[in-house]
Amino acid sequence: MPMNRRLRAGLYVFGGVCALLLVTAVVATYVVLQPERFTALLQSRARAAGLELTLANPASPTLWPSPALDLEGVMLRGEGSSTPLIVASRGRVVLPWHTLLGGEATISRLEVEGARIDVDAVSAYLDTLPSRPSTAGATLPTIDAGFRIARGTLLRGTKLVLSNIEAEADRLASGRRFTLTLSARLADGTPYALDLDTVPTLSRGVLTLADMTLGLDSDPRFESTLKGTATWRGGADVGASLTGRVTRHDATPYDVALRVMPANENDPLYVALKLDGDTDHADLRLPPLALAQWWAGIRGTGSLTMPPLVGTVQAQNVDAGSLHVKGLRIRATPDAPAATATVGVAP
């Protein structure tokens, strides 16, 4: 009997010590991490960019598996705007361990889950930013912390643009290798995935993306990998040279050569694209700005017109959704652009 009494007493003492340690750890977590300090840091950074950050509940700190603050009901909107740019069900701010020792309040990673992004609201916010001089050199956005987006959705007002968005990137800094992975589904359910691996370098107003590998695929329809370099000197002064291959699930592959030529006194910015397959060939020049205007016109009027491209297309078969064409031939020259080009289709 005395043994059982001592055993019970020992268990009570042990349980009390564990409870005390647990309470101490919880209190220490709140005291050391100081959730209000990092919440204020996030909000101050948002205000510096002309944004307002609000949370549905105060941040909740945790130490495992690394120091972090869990956020609920994250909303980001432009100052003075009633429409949020981003609404997320949950967020997580991962902190470096040295913050536990009273170090500088910095963030090592941002994670967002269930984010809804409004393209129109983002565009309206960007319009409020001061324009950069046309002579200004390139810039490299500061991303000290890596980020991750899970189960994201991209909207234009109430219209779905992309769903099931999964994105992840590490720190972005000059001279440091940078990787980005992105996957999503179009409104019709078609899946796409993009992978970028490069070393960005910013020097004297010139941003160079060296040793770049760009992958784009839509499983199981096609996979593509391009390698090369790109440069940006500010404004429309963009250049790139990429080569690679497109592998198609139900057809022969393409060899691809892609060049981006910067604007000059005579020509706008344009993309030169060459595709070479066993039966299909294309050699095109596409001006991105004019293409954007063409697409906006189609969306506005609903009438289908030829895009503003120059070059030639020779395709044995074209299958795009409900559109099926055999023996397609297009020839568009500077004097006869695609809108008035010669188009031939085999019977």
Rank of each mutant, 00 (worst) to 15 (best):
1 M>Y: 12
12 Y>E: 05
13 V>W: 15
20 L>K: 01
21 L>W: 14
24 T>Q: 11
25 A>E: 05
25 A>P: 04
27 V>E: 08
36 E>D: 14
49 A>I: 01
49 A>R: 15
55 L>M: 13
58 P>Q: 10
67 P>W: 07
72 E>R: 13
72 E>A: 12
76 L>R: 01
79 E>M: 09
80 G>M: 07
81 S>P: 01
82 S>A: 13
87 V>G: 12
89 S>T: 11
89 S>P: 00
93 V>L: 14
95 L>W: 11
96 P>Y: 07
98 H>T: 03
98 H>R: 12
99 T>C: 11
104 E>T: 08
112 V>T: 12
121 A>H: 03
121 A>K: 00
125 Y>V: 00
125 Y>N: 02
127 D>C: 07
136 A>K: 08
139 T>R: 11
148 R>W: 03
153 T>R: 15
156 R>W: 05
160 L>I: 05
161 V>P: 02
162 L>T: 03
165 I>F: 10
166 E>L: 10
173 A>G: 05
182 L>G: 05
183 S>W: 01
183 S>F: 02
185 R>E: 14
196 L>I: 13
197 D>C: 01
198 T>G: 06
201 T>Y: 07
202 L>G: 05
208 T>S: 11
210 A>W: 01
212 M>T: 14
224 S>E: 08
227 K>P: 00
231 T>C: 07
234 G>M: 06
235 G>C: 02
242 L>H: 09
244 G>K: 02
248 R>L: 15
250 D>C: 05
251 A>G: 05
254 Y>L: 10
261 M>C: 06
279 T>N: 14
280 D>T: 01
281 H>W: 04
281 H>E: 11
282 A>N: 08
294 W>N: 08
296 A>N: 09
312 T>S: 15
317 N>R: 15
318 V>G: 06
319 D>S: 15
320 A>F: 10
320 A>I: 13
323 L>D: 04
332 A>R: 00
333 T>Y: 06
334 P>D: 07
334 P>H: 09
337 P>R: 04
339 A>M: 07
341 A>F: 02
346 A>M: 10
